[in-house]
Structures are given as C-alpha cells and as structure tokens.
Nucleic acid binder design. Structure first.
Length: 512
RNA sequence: GGUCCGUUCGUCUAGGGGUUAGGACACCAGAUUUUCAUUCUGGUAACACGGGUUCGAUUCCCGUACGGACUACCA
C-alpha cells in the first residue's frame, strides 16, 4: 500500500461546520492509523467569499478537537504553499497544458451570452441546458474561433475562462471506497470551467492539481462531491495522472434532526444547539454562531459522538478515545446513508466523559464558574460540592448552575412544591428543627440527620412527610442532592437563616 | 426536470438467504434513593412498497415510492 497522505481542505468562508469537523476527523484517523500524513490545505480560490478570520478559526477548531496537522497551513511542509491563492501559477500551467493537448479550450462568452444560450436550450425543450460537446460549437471559444481570432482576443486582454473539453460519449467510472463503482456518462458532465476569468482556478482543477502534487493517497470528503467526482477522474486522465489518482471515499451527509435535509445553522439555532466547534461571529454580517466548546462540550465527547455519526466499530463498545478510534477506525465500516444529528446522544457522551474526570479536574470547572460570578470558595468546600453534584451534571457549568443554592440563599421558592408540601405539620417540624440546630455547636451531615430524626420522633411525624418541605426551605426547590450534605456544606448559621427566611416568606404567602 | 446517491426501532446503528432481527441514546415501568438525579432490572419499538430468484428473503436482482446531494466563472 502506498504511503497514506490525506488532506482536509476547507475554504475560509466562515466558521467550520460540524460536518467538516467530522470529515477532518476521518481523514485524521486514517492518517494516524497508517502512520501517514495529515495535511491542511486552504481552498481560497473564491476571492469574493473570503472571510477574514476564518482560517484562524479552522486552525483553532481543529486544535481544540485534537486533530493535529502534520503538514500544511500553520506548520509548512515540502509542498508549500498550502493556500491555493498562493499557488495560482501552477494551475494556469496545467490548464495551458490541457489546452495544448486538446483537452481544454478558451471560452470568451459573456454572462449574457451564456444566459441566452441557456434560455435558448430551455425553450427548445432541453432537459438540462449545459455547455457541452454540442453547445460549445455554437459559442465563442477556441473551438469555434480561428487561431488568429483567439490570439487577437488574448492579446487584446479580452476576459476568458478555460473550459474542460469533455468527450461526447464516454463511460466515466470511479471506484468509491464507500459506494463501490459509480458510473456516469460523459454526456451528463458539462464543460466545466477550470480557470476563471480572474485567473483563479475553480475547485475542480485546483483540487486535482494539488492532490496530485501533494501526493494525496486518499480523498475523504462529503457526499456533495460525488456528482463531480467523475469530472475529477477525467481530469486525472487528461493530465496523465491516472495511476497516481487517489482513492475516493464520499462520506454520507449529516442531516437535520427532524425531517430530512442537510444539517444547517438554521436548524441548530431553532433547536437551540450548536453545530460549530467554537463560537464565531461573522465579521461581515455580525451574525453569531455558537460553538460546542462554549456550550460546555468536552472535545473528547464531541469527537466520540462525531466518529459514530456514520461509522461504527462493529462491536458494542461506545466510548472511544482518540487513540481508540485510531486503532479501530476503518473506511470499510463507514455507512452509506445520511445520519441525523441527535444532540441527545452528544449530551450523553458529554456526561460520560465528564463523569470520568477526577474530582480535582471537576473542581476546576466549578471554580471557573464561581470566578465568573465573583464568588470565592475554599478548596474543601469545592471538593464537597463536586462530590455531591458529580452524578447529576452533563456540562461543566452545571456544577454552578444546578448547585447555586450551595452558594447563595434562594430568593424564591418553587410554588408547586410549596403548594403540596408546605403545611402546618411541616412548619411545626421545621421550626423545631431550626431551633435545635441553632443550639448545636456546629452542623455536619450526621448531626443534621440525627437532629432531624430526633425532632420528628418527638413530634410524632414521619421524616419522609416533611423532608421535601425542609429541602424547599433550604434550597428553594423540590429536588437536588443529599440534603444532609447540603446542610453540612452551607453550615449551621446559613441553615438557620434560610429556614427562618422560608418560615416567614412562605407563611405570609399562605395567609394571603 | 436531469444525473448521481441512499432507505433496519423515534434517533445512531449491528446483522445477513433459515435469527426470539442484536446494541446504544431517547422514552415508559419497577427496584434502590424517605425527594429529584444516579444506579440496577424490565418494557414499548424497525427490515419503505411491489415483483422476481429461491424450498425459504429483511438479506440477492429489477422496478416503484420516498428522501437527499448535485445541476455557477461557490466550494
């Protein structure tokens, strides 16, 4: 097998879509597994769509998910430059060779002329109007013009494009690693523009020239490229590179969660989940897009989730680190059908990875949230908080968001719970409990429990009957971690104060 | 419209000519937790349809339907 060299080749037109991250991931896995090379190339041949900052975003996003680039943008390499805009002369050189060998031609048609041609074909009832072996004989190009006319036009600086001369009838075949043999008749392919009038190549030419020059062995890319893959095969053939042609693998698409169709930013916004790795603000439109990182997803969880969208190991193992994935990955096990994006599964992965972290790491998350709120907290307390919250968090920020009551007293009480559980009996027990706690020198979970049991026993009330009311008075909510531990963490004085406040507030409410 | 690709529980998927069609997420129920969550146990739930081929098809073939991608001097 030849040396594995793969590339991820995004265009810097905005934030990197999550589907792009998956494509990069699969490329990376194949490279690592085979001791190959992962190349990052930037396809910036459309100057009108260039977005400043997008390239940096791509770099940062890949770094965050743990995809390391061996060669290309950011690291350099033997085939530099890796930005297509900086490789401009190479494409023209190959395009001219195609012309010289009769496989491409100059075309001078204006936009209006092209439009007119399409109109004409449409009214003539042609199913799909295209610039092809038939129509090119009626247009202004180096096929119809004389050599002198072409020379004059070029010398005069007339704008032109270079088009591929696609044969009239030829079966173009391509063996895709995921889909098997795909056959397309050349009459279905039109004379694609190779070089644009601004001197830049189109994707088709640039991609083939670069993949060849960079000795790419496998092209793993999205399914949206499948229809133009035969065109690329043709290009390899005319350039004389057939035997060096990379193997193709066209990945199934990532679909929106409901209904069908490609996953888009719209869907994500509507359903309230991210589809970009990192937060991003478009410098042109000021449009904001939220990222997995900022939403609290761990990179290892995102990677695991993404890897399983379209691929599976064939075993029942679900949790895979990047190293595990590198070992287990295989292109053969990539599915053919599009995968719907289910954020629930992503959350589940996040939860799994979050829980597998050490308490010390989790404490860091809590402390980071607290710092933002300007709340100080001792190491000891932080560890206690983490230990009782650990089993109920999905995101790092949950330690704070779901455990606020461990730091600040509730300002309001859950009305549903109050309505059901806050009754005379509960008030009686709770105020007695408060008085007993006040007498104690200090409060920890065991003494809290003992005190509560003693109070309920002496009043002849089942502890279970009033426990939720007690919880409500201390945390403001009906559910949460172990109440005795909560009391230990917030301490005696705070317990007494909070119960006192609840007794006042909730009583007033009952009377009103 | 044309070309290409696809179709197993709600979702991600395993499987493959004869299986009780398996797992995971989600959901539901029970147990534990004097709450909620966790955990454990159990449950509901799928081969798009129609023809072939075959003793037998969800699996192979052909159609149909449905879905998607592409159809630019965008990638």
């Amino acid at each position: 097998m030849r040396e594995v060299r793969v590339r991820f080749a995004p265009s810097p037109t905005g934030a990197l879509h999550i589907g792009g991250v998956r494509t990069a991931l699969y490329n990376y896995l194949l490279a690592r597994q085979n001791n190959g090379t992962m190349i990052l190339r930037i396809e910036d041949t459309d100057q009108t769509r260039f977005v400043p900052g997008a390239e940096e975003y791509i770099l940062k996003a890949l770094e965050w998910v743990g995809i390391k680039i061996d060669e290309g943008i950011g690291v350099g390499g033997p085939h530099a430059p890796y930005r297509q805009s900086e490789r401009k002369p190479m494409y023209m050189e190959h395009a001219l060779r195609l012309i010289a060998e009769g496989n491409a031609y100059y075309a001078f048609d204006t936009e209006q002329e092209l439009e007119a041609m399409r109109e004409r074909l449409k009214t003539a009832g042609v199913a799909s109007p295209q610039y092809n072996s038939i129509t090119r004989t009626q247009m202004r190009n180096s096929v119809t013009l004389t050599e002198d006319e072409v020379k004059d036009l070029l010398n005069a600086g007339a704008p032109y494009v270079i088009r591929l001369k696609v044969p009239r009838k030829e079966e173009v075949r391509l063996n895709d690693m995921i889909r098997g043999w795909v056959m397309v008749h050349s009459s279905q392919i039109d004379d694609k523009v190779l070089m644009k009038s601004d001197g830049m190549p189109t994707y088709h030419l640039a991609n083939v020239v670069d993949d060849y020059l960079m000795k790419i062995s496998h092209v793993i890319r999205g399914e949206e490229w499948l229809p133009s893959a035969p065109l690329h095969v043709l290009l390899y053939k005319y350039l004389g590179w057939e035997k060096d042609m990379p193997q193709f693998a066209h990945l199934p698409l990532l679909l929106k969660p409901t209904g069908d169709g490609k996953l888009s930013k719209r869907d994500a916004d509507q359903m309230g989940f991210p589809i970009f790795p990192l937060d991003w603000v478009d410098p042109n439109t000021n449009e904001k897009a939220s990222g997995f990182r900022e939403a609290g997803y761990l990179p290892e969880a995102l990677v695991n989730f993404l890897a399983f969208l379209g691929w599976n190991p064939g075993t029942t193992q679900e949790l895979f680190s990047m190293d595990d994935l590198i070992k287990a990955f295989s292109v053969e096990r990539i599915g053919k059908a599009g995968a719907k994006f289910d954020i629930h599964k992503a959350q589940w992965f996040n939860q799994q990875y979050l829980r597998s972290k050490s308490d010390a790491e989790l404490v860091e998350y809590l402390l980071a949230s607290l710092a933002k709120e300007n709340i100080s907290c001792s190491q000891e307390k932080a560890f206690k908080v983490v230990s009782i919250m650990k089993e109920r968090v999905t995101f790092p920020k949950d330690f704070w968001e779901q455990g606020k009551f461990l730091f600040t007293a509730p300002a309001a009480f859950d009305e549903g719970v109050a309505g059901k559980k806050w009754n005379d009996e509960a008030v009686k027990v709770i105020s007695a409990f408060k008085d007993e706690v006040a007498k104690l020198p200090a409060l920890d979970a065991t003494t809290a429990k003992a005190t509560l049991e003693q109070v309920t026993a002496s009043l002849g009330v089942g502890t279970g009957k009033i426990l939720q009311a007690l919880r409500l008075s201390i945390t403001g909510a009906g559910g949460g971690p172990d109440l005795m531990m909560i009391m230990e963490i917030i301490g005696k004085d705070e317990v007494v104060n909070r119960i006192g406040f609840a007794l006042q507030t909730l009583k007033v409410k009952a009377n009103a």
